[in-house]
């Protein structure tokens, strides 16, 4: 499923990024890597950003970008 579909408060593993090299680069630069375990913190309504927690940090990801991140709930 995509990161936008994941329920808030649930943990998941990052599986794939469906985007160009630029998007992948931006995600990886901030530490969002394939194989990482993340926890979804919140989901803003009206296609707002998704907030996730990875290790010690929280990242806010725009809705469109988040919808291109495939995750697997655990």
């Amino acid at each position: 499923m995509t990161l936008t579909e994941l329920e808030s408060g649930k943990q998941a593993r990052v599986i794939a990024f469906n985007g160009g090299p630029n998007m992948i680069k931006r995600l990886e630069n901030l530490g969002l890597l394939r194989g990482k375990t993340i926890k979804k913190v919140s989901n803003n309504p009206f296609k707002g950003p998704v907030v996730v927690k990875i290790d010690q940090i929280e990242l806010a990801i725009g809705h469109r970008m988040a919808s291109r991140i495939t995750v697997e709930p655990i």
Partner: peptide
């Protein structure tokens, strides 16, 4: 518009 992507 580009997407928001930031560290909190």
């Amino acid at each position: 518009s580009p997407e928001l992507f930031l560290e909190i």
